[in-house]
Design a protein around this nucleic acid. Structure first.
Ligand SMILES: [Zn+2]
Ligand SMILES: [Zn+2]
Ligand SMILES: [Zn+2]
Ligand SMILES: [Zn+2]
Lengths: 135, 135
DNA sequence: TTTTTAGTTGTTATAATATAACACTATGTA
DNA sequence: TACATAGTGTTATATTATAACAACTAAAAA
């Protein structure tokens, strides 16, 4: 029903790989994904990368560029993968997708000196997460 | 001796590689840099990557994460190696470092829902540059 | 129904990006 | 001088990602 209409559109490989990323508490790297899905019959890097490309394209996952890793989108308003922001802990590598109406609005409307507007952005914040700050 | 903002004295390899990047009108990739400096005696990837790491660390260059490429900082002696923003044209791949006081201020002060503040960020905007818009 | 089409799959091979390990050299400072 | 710190040169290897091509599948068009 409302549950996984989108997910039903995923192909077998896409679903296997999405489920793995979605269950994970931290971003996963392509070859770590490959290793984890080999028992399900996905044997080659290209099978993983193709699924990842598609999942990124439809906004089910995001790529954390500074880490070459992939995280499931848990931001219901983020249908489109065109406006992403993350916080990254430099100690434990915990990554969280930031969902801030103020931030999205500010960035979506940002214009540079020439008045150029952008169709897409990706923002990565770095610092220490709560847990690591206390250590 | 006090710690005056000592001009980082670049070593030979660092200088060769910085000069190349600085002269370039677009971001350069590590192996493209390697091919271009082989005539100057830099023969191995590691020599390039070590220089790049150092140059990034001291803010003379920045890495464009989504492109795995490096660009010289033109933000007058970049205090902001830890606060970077770029615009990237998705057609011609032209990259420009954004220098906007408003944007830097907004992001430097941004706090997430938990009140977490960040020590560093990188923002990449995507769209079409002026030239490509007109085509 | 059959045909066509776009998209996905499976596979091998290879390209592109980046780091490990180790011996050595240069340079600044006590 | 002796020591510490940073950079160098080198070989080998790890990690991340794409090229090329044949085959399959679902669904749209005829
Ligand atoms: Zn999202
Ligand atoms: Zn942490
Ligand atoms: Zn800069
Ligand atoms: Zn352009």
């Amino acid at each position: 029903m409302n549950k996984m209409r989108k997910e039903h559109n995923l192909t077998k490989n896409q679903k296997i790989i999405f489920d793995l990323i979605d269950k994970s508490s931290q971003p996963l790297k392509a070859y770590s994904i490959l290793y984890n899905v080999q028992k399900k019959g996905i044997k080659a890097p290209l099978q993983v990368y193709r699924a990842l490309d598609k999942l990124v394209e439809i906004g089910k996952i995001h790529k954390i560029e500074s880490r070459n890793a992939f995280i499931a989108c848990h931001n219901s308003s983020c249908q489109v993968a065109k406006a992403t922001a993350f916080s990254i802990c430099e100690i434990c590598e915990k990554v969280t997708e930031i969902s801030s109406a103020g931030l999205s609005k500010y960035l979506a409307n940002f214009k540079d000196k020439d008045g150029m507007k952008y169709s897409k952005y990706n923002l990565e914040f770095f610092g220490l997460c709560k847990k690591c700050t206390l250590k």
